[in-house]
Design a protein around this nucleic acid. Structure first.
Lengths: 222, 222
DNA sequence: CTTTAAAGTAACTAATTAGTTACTTTACTC
DNA sequence: GAGTAAAGTAACTAATTAGTTACTTTAAAG
């Protein structure tokens, strides 16, 4: 069947292409709206309107609202999968590795507000959906970091009594909350919290806190 | 009028008492349910049922769903008002003061899950309601802390280049996120994150991070 | 004991919204 | 270019839910 050249369209099936494009547009609109309003506040009709595609097709492509939401989560968690595999530690100093990992995470959040918000809705919903969607993505984050920290401890740069999980929790907290609670904290500042300078200032503060917290002060011991 | 003893009931108006009690029961149920489901997910009928009081009375006492929600927020923010005024710094060392303030905040959150969740819903809703409700409660928190830190800087215990707002943000982040993201992070631990030992362990980790981050290492300088 | 006003109830209304159905358009296949 | 299967549309349905109305019960006051 595949051998028959006449049956294979030169440029891949225009209809198929169109439908893939539609699916993608629905997913993009859904990401924006679910991130903005949360799974409860988001309206299927609004997503249809924003994507410019009829509601009927949302059900054709994704089944129902909940599955669409799950798909949005999946595609967004994939982004951090990609990040955590990329940020793998080379043979730099532990401090450099930690700095690089935190910086990567911080700027990932800065550039992916949808991710920040989606994961926050999830946290409030007890991870109801996340559990179905992701094969324990927290573990991945830990694994990536675990290596850095264990290396650091062996090379006597990092205090051995440190609990990696606590440190991870803290890094997550320090980075996420900046974007998470931005609007509630904005009154304290004059500047836009998302300007380049403010972002760098925040990241620098976080790095100071983290490294001074987990590293011996002064040079490596022994 | 008040002089006529016969007209003044001995035990204060039983009806009035009953209605105050009803109002309180509605507010308590609303707090639980708004905290659990958020302003969008919460159902007025559910609140009525949980409080054991007819829906009609919710509208009689509070006007509508939104005003009830605002009232829930108000009563919960009041708790932290009370906290921030109580935790005022005496003439202890700056490090002791910071430690005490952070500990008070941390255990306040541990004991008030409703507060944690309500403020998280608010953060995701851009503080829509908070702005109406609270006369900038963040400011209060800052003021309480500002004194401690300025004292610390003057007495050369705290680095002068520290940005108090960043530190406040970080303390909030480190404490809140523990309760906030508890369910998503739970997979990393075997123990219950809310047990007495785990709470103390987390608080200790936070204190290490904060104090090592903002204090000179070693003794006070000059 | 009767009047009265507020507390409380149950059943209703109007609006919203997830999901469906019956129909039309488009473009691939022969 | 005729047949067909999928993409797409618009109008509908059923369920939910915020808010209301017309009515009953309770207890304070003369």
């Amino acid at each position: 069947m595949e051998g028959n050249a006449r049956k294979v369209p030169l440029n891949r099936n225009r209809r198929e292409q169109r439908s893939e494009e539609s699916r993608a547009r629905i997913l993009a609109a859904a990401t924006t709206i679910f991130a903005e309003k949360g799974p409860d506040g988001a309206r299927v009709d609004e997503i249809a309107k924003a994507s410019g595609i009829n509601k009927r097709m949302i059900y054709a492509y994704f089944g129902n609202k909940e599955e669409l939401y799950a798909e949005v989560l999946r595609s967004n968690y994939n982004k951090i999968y990609a990040l955590s595999t990329k940020a793998v530690d080379l043979k730099r100093t532990p401090k450099e590795n930690v700095t690089r990992a935190v910086r990567a995470y911080f700027y990932f959040l800065a550039e992916n507000e949808a991710f920040v918000r989606l994961s926050s809705w999830e946290a409030l919903n007890g991870g109801r959906f996340s559990r179905k969607v992701l094969p324990s993505f927290v573990d991945l984050l830990v694994l990536a970091f675990d290596d850095i920290v264990k290396d650091g401890i062996q090379r006597k740069f990092i205090r051995p009594n440190i609990d990696i999980r606590q440190v991870l929790f803290s890094i997550q907290a320090l980075c996420l909350t900046y974007f998470n609670r931005r609007e509630l904290m904005q009154p304290l500042w004059q500047e836009d919290l998302l300007s380049g300078e403010m972002l760098e200032a925040r990241l620098q503060h976080i790095l100071d806190l983290i490294t001074d917290g987990i590293f011996y002060h002064g040079e490596a011991v022994e």
